[in-house]
């Protein structure tokens, strides 16, 4: 793979995400079948669909946690073509502009909340401990967890952990944020805390791609709704339009299952 990196932040923030003809298979098992997607900068895209549709894999292709077998990935000024080796340096440059939040939080359990947010800043951006801690405290305050700074993740609730994880990703000043079912491991009530942080982020103009089963959030917050099923995107467009009048039978069946339960 080759990465042509532009450090021009201004330009990068106007690029968004362009995924072209992404395919991925494990042996004979096809996971993504020639999938393409455009995400305009400053917009929120919600990725919904039945499990096994390939939503998470597709999301994870954006920051190359999964390597697609073919296709082109253009993310925030970096263009990546599978087939050639990508250097660790280019990979780091790509990942620096893309933040990711996982279903299982994946905070570092041996570090305090503050250290979780500061450590990547020191290592990736080369910020001093003081600079990093200052930024971390700002972000922890923003997600409403300033008082948890000195606690280890094990002492925080799931919702708190997920908000710390969001702060950790934001601390690297990404231009794009990816969310992989961020509330699926949480109680419905606790999930609300996380969703409200995500709403604020969206309102501030962050480019976001969210794999989710939260239909309310998808309808209210996202600009584009993308429905995936059977390794493909089967429908995309305005979330309200799709939810009230889906064009595909498969979409209708899925929406009926999640909305009318």
């Amino acid at each position: 793979m080759t990465v042509s990196a532009t450090t021009d932040e201004a330009r990068a923030s106007h690029v968004g995400i362009k995924l072209n003809n992404i395919s991925k298979r494990y042996g004979d098992h096809v996971v993504l079948d020639d999938v393409s997607l455009n995400v305009e900068p400053g917009t929120v895209t919600a990725l919904i669909g039945p499990s096994g549709a390939g939503k998470s894999t597709f999301l994870r292709c954006i920051n190359l946690l999964e390597r697609p077998d073919s296709g082109t990935i253009r993310v925030a000024g970096h263009t990546i073509e599978p087939g050639k080796n990508v250097s660790a340096r280019d990979l780091a440059a790509l990942r620096r502009s893309v933040g990711m939040v996982f279903q299982s939080f994946n905070l570092f359990p041996h570090m305090t909340a503050l250290k979780n947010v500061s450590f990547p800043q020191q290592r990736v951006l080369g910020r001093s401990k003081e600079e990093a801690d200052e930024r971390s405290m700002q972000l922890l305050e923003r997600v409403g967890l300033k008082e948890k700074a000195g606690q280890h993740p094990g002492r925080c609730s799931g919702g708190q952990q997920q908000r710390i994880a969001i702060a950790r990703a934001l601390a690297l000043d990404p231009s794009i944020m990816l969310f992989d079912e961020p509330t699926s491991a949480l109680d419905p009530e606790v999930g609300l805390e996380v969703l409200s942080v995500m709403r604020e982020l969206a309102a501030d103009g962050m480019t976001m791609v969210v794999v989710t089963h939260e239909m309310q959030f998808a309808r209210d917050v996202s600009d584009t709704l993308v429905v995936m099923a059977d390794c493909k995107i089967i429908e995309q467009g305005d979330p309200r339009a799709i939810m009230s009048d889906p064009q595909e039978t498969r979409t209708r069946r899925f929406l009926r299952a999640v909305l009318e339960r």
């Binding site: 946690l65 790509l94 905070l107 570092f108 990547p120 990736v124 950790r168 990703a169």
Partner: peptide, 21 residues
């Protein structure tokens, strides 16, 4: 847990730091 490495990779932390830290 594998998620630890993934989170570290996603943050752009180097392989070396991911392992040792």
């Amino acid at each position: 847990a594998r998620g630890q490495t993934e989170a570290s990779n996603a943050l752009g932390i180097s392989q070396r730091d991911t392992f040792f830290r």
